[in-house]
Design a protein around this nucleic acid. Structure first.
Lengths: 351, 351
DNA sequence: CTGAAAGCGCTTACAG
DNA sequence: CTGAAAGCGCTTACAG
């Protein structure tokens, strides 16, 4: 026996061959039966199934992958610290399961490049990759997609990237329109001094910034355009709030680039005695909600997480199975959800 | 060629054999070189490494696993909706990497049994499993641990489960003592009417409930013991708050079983005009914090997430490598973190 | 320093 | 309905 001595694991873990031996049939037949293929008598089927269950047989994914050459596994890169992504992940599982695919997860960590978890996914033979709000550059994405199909969820990809001739697709929310809806709503209420705390280069942030500018201009408010630089964290929102409070006057409305930033704003402003929405209206983006708890009752732009997840899975599978017919970019509509942090501007505007 | 035609993937993905052919050496040597083993001249080493890089060679984890018989991969079951678990996951990666292990993640979903994601982990040949706050019964855990080493992070496992003779270990916080510290602190401030909103059968909840009872008794406050049933969600905290508000009088302090529950309490109580901490002190558990943002400035019992993660990984690896010498239960101390939601009881106690 | 060879556990044409 | 056989890409004694 030229190979190394095996650990107790292999003796502990029953193989297909053992099931076959116990059942007195060939390995081929066991494979067919477990795969649900025809070709075995009903009686044999039952016996083999019973034995497999009895010995606790579990298919070895590694061997299966190796034999198949390609896996029915979708690799998902997420950031476990982002609650909105948790909602996407929650939607990805059932969508994948329905198409007969498994899902493997890895997470981004702040102290290592995104390519590390992505490499792990590829090494484990994920057939295609779903990247949630990736931060890598476009060159990297194109190189990656030349190797394995990639679906990017969140940020907008320029046409030249999507059209680079590789297996790269994009699923996202119509961020610009979502912010535009929020601006329209605030303007209708009578707001004019609407400020935007942006999300830096966070997923969707450039689009949201653009949507804000365009909507303000469309309402003839271009000279009221006012942007504080931020990112998609509570801390950035809190910092923006401090900056606002240091100014001579407050805007009547603030549009945060995401809910986390809005939370930071809400926290600092509320503590400083700013009445929300009486004195200032606050609107977030994402509608992050994993429980049914209304949390802070934030007016926000709702993203269709289950829809995004479903399309991402569909595209990932189509790309993998080489039958991607439709467009490689899916843009879902958002929906403004009006809750308790927004209302008409105060009668006496401070400016 | 009896096997099925391969998809474009295999032709696209370079193998070790291709690298060997290009370099004009044997596959064995390539394997040795990529593995960092001695046995090749420096010149050959460099050439092979260069070629591997040039053709974009990536090791095939499936084949590697199959050949090795055992994987250097740790499977982690988490719940992507639980922020505290995200902190554990964040700590698990670097700890595993340091020991030369990879990490594979799956998530619990509310609509399917925990055994589904666990089976996926096993199928992908994870050498051992780290289960974050699992909800499965003890019988299941014992059965599972007979098959593959299991480390449970969070809930306390009874001695008879840990001593069942299978590869099962536990890492947790001293929940009872943590709550006890919080009770001591509140009593020192002058509180007597200290109520506990428990966490049902959430991870650590039974211990926290016990700790509350014991600490209250130790202070001679057994007749003030008052528990509202809940779970580890904001919604449960909010429900408890509503129940409290419907009572004739409020306690002077509330101990929530975790931070999410405390958030729900805080939200509803604050909205109802209850002054926190002036009128009522609120204490959470976990110290969930992924950003540096103080969020709601909650007084809480801090859990050492990096420490829990590190011990979990260490045990998982020791169990896997059959050199588990030390105890199979690690209990880490918690630390009370006093912030803005707690203070002395109001001068005029409502009762 | 290097190569031929067996084996990991599975799948799937192919031939009964 | 069933079996013998090759192959997926890797690792590792063993023999030069």
């Amino acid at each position: 026996m030229p190979s190394a001595p095996r650990g107790p694991a292999s003796s502990r873990r029953p193989t297909m061959a053992e099931v076959a031996a116990k059942a007195g049939v060939s390995r081929t037949l066991v494979s067919f039966i477990l795969d649900g293929k025809p070709g075995a008598s009903e009686e044999t089927r039952q016996r083999v199934l019973a034995i497999a269950k009895e010995v606790g047989y579990r298919p070895d994914a590694a061997a299966r992958l190796l034999a198949l050459g390609r896996s029915r596994t979708l690799g998902v890169l997420t950031d476990v610290r982002q609650l909105f992504q948790a909602e996407l992940v929650t939607g990805i599982y059932p969508a994948a399961e329905q198409l007969g695919y498994e899902v493997l997860l890895t997470t981004n960590l702040s102290d290592r490049p995104e390519s590390v978890p992505i490499d792990a996914l590829i090494s484990h033979r994920c057939g295609s990759l779903i990247l949630l709000a990736p931060t890598s550059g476009h060159d990297y994405l194109i190189k990656l997609a030349a190797e394995v199909p990639v679906v990017v969820v969140g940020p907008r990809l320029p046409a030249e990237v999507l059209g680079a001739g590789v297996d790269l697709a994009s699923v996202r929310t119509d961020d610009a329109r979502g912010i535009g809806d929020a601006v329209d709503y605030l303007v209708t209420l009578g707001h004019k001094d609407i400020l935007h705390v942006d999300g830096g280069d966070g997923s969707g942030s450039p689009e949201r910034r653009r949507g804000y500018r365009e909507a303000m201009s469309a309402h003839g408010l271009e000279e009221r355009i006012d942007i504080i630089a931020g990112d998609h964290t509570e801390e950035a929102g809190a910092a923006a709030a401090r900056e606002l409070l240091a100014r001579p006057g407050l805007p009547t409305a603030v549009l945060a680039s995401n809910d986390r930033s809005a939370l930071g704003l809400l926290d600092v402003l509320t503590r400083s005695g700013v009445d929300i929405p009486g004195e200032l209206s606050l609107v977030g983006f994402d509608d992050t909600r994993l429980s049914d708890f209304p949390r802070i009752d934030l007016t926000t732009v709702h993203q269709d997480a289950p829809g995004l997840a479903q399309h991402a899975v569909r595209l990932a599978v189509e790309l993998l199975e080489r039958r991607c017919s439709g467009p490689k970019e899916v843009v879902l509509r958002s929906q403004l959800v009006i809750r308790g942090t927004s209302g008409p501007p105060p009668a006496t505007v401070r400016r």
